[in-house]
Each structure stands twice: as structure tokens, then as C-alpha cells.
């Protein structure tokens, strides 16, 4: 369910930047701390994106590993507690959830056309 809400937010964001052009790919940076299941997110973007510029768009998802820092040391979760002072570490990476870019180039109106088809059409 989490991913459904986030998929809607992704599609909204992309629609604002696509200016009506069909989107081939959405490049996304997701921090590991956001607890997102990539397969689930892809599934929901496909569903929420139907009848929008995102229809058939490929999700290029980069998962950023979580990194915490405190007292001059860096470490990875699950513990958020500083190994030196016991306090809460500062999140250096792993919190992001950003649409980095979208690819709006050269796609025909038919979504998800396999490459072979495109090649066939190019030959004819």
C-alpha cells in the first residue's frame, strides 16, 4: 500500500515536468531507509500511470544504501545508535526519494514497444 501512494506521487511529479510528452523512462533515486519494495513500486507506477504520459514508462530505480555518521565514524543500519557515544547518528545517505530525470525522447504513441518491433518498422 505504501508503494501505491508513492507511485501516485511519482506520476504526479513526472506529469508536471513532461509537459504532455509521452515518457519513456523515469529515473528515480530511492534511499534504503524509505522501505520501498522496488518490484511493488514498478507494479504500481504501471497501474497508476495508465492513461497518463507515464503509460508504459520504464522505471530506472537506483537504491541508495543507508549511511549514518556521528563522532567521526560512519556505519550502516540496522542500528542508528553511534558506536562511540551511543547517541543518534545523522543520516548521511539513504533518506532520498527523488525523481532525477525523465526521458521524453523519441517514443511513439504506443507504449512499451519491444526493440525488435521498432527495428522492423525502421526497415519497412
Amino acid at each position: 500500500m505504501h508503494e501505491l501512494s508513492l507511485a501516485s506521487a511519482i506520476v504526479d511529479t513526472v506529469e508536471r515536468h513532461a509537459e504532455g510528452r509521452p515518457v519513456r523512462a523515469i529515473s528515480l533515486r530511492v534511499g534504503a531507509l524509505r522501505q520501498v519494495v522496488p518490484e511493488s513500486l514498478e507494479f504500481y507506477v504501471e497501474i497508476v500511470g495508465r492513461d497518463t504520459v507515464c503509460e508504459g514508462a520504464r522505471l530506472e530505480l537506483e537504491v541508495v544504501p543507508a549511511l549514518l555518521a556521528c563522532c567521526g565514524v560512519e556505519w550502516e543500519p540496522p542500528s542508528f545508535r553511534c558506536p562511540r557515544c551511543g547517541g543518534g547518528g545523522k543520516v548521511v545517505a539513504g533518506d532520498e526519494f527523488m525523481v532525477e530525470s525523465i526521458d521524453v525522447g523519441g517514443r511513439s504513441t504506443e507504449p512499451n514497444r519491444p526493440k525488435e518491433d521498432a527495428a522492423c518498422i525502421a526497415r519497412t
Binding site: 506521487a9 511519482i10 511529479t13 515536468h17 521498432a118
Partner: peptide
């Protein structure tokens, strides 16, 4: 096939924010 990238660099939850 050429690709036309549009930079977005926007937090997904900006609109909610």
C-alpha cells in the same frame, strides 16, 4: 534511438510538502 532527458531533481513528496 535518441533519448531526451528532462532534469527533474524533485523530491517525490514535494507537492505534499
Amino acid at each position: 534511438m535518441h533519448r531526451t532527458y528532462v532534469k527533474v531533481l524533485e523530491d517525490v513528496l514535494d507537492a505534499n510538502g
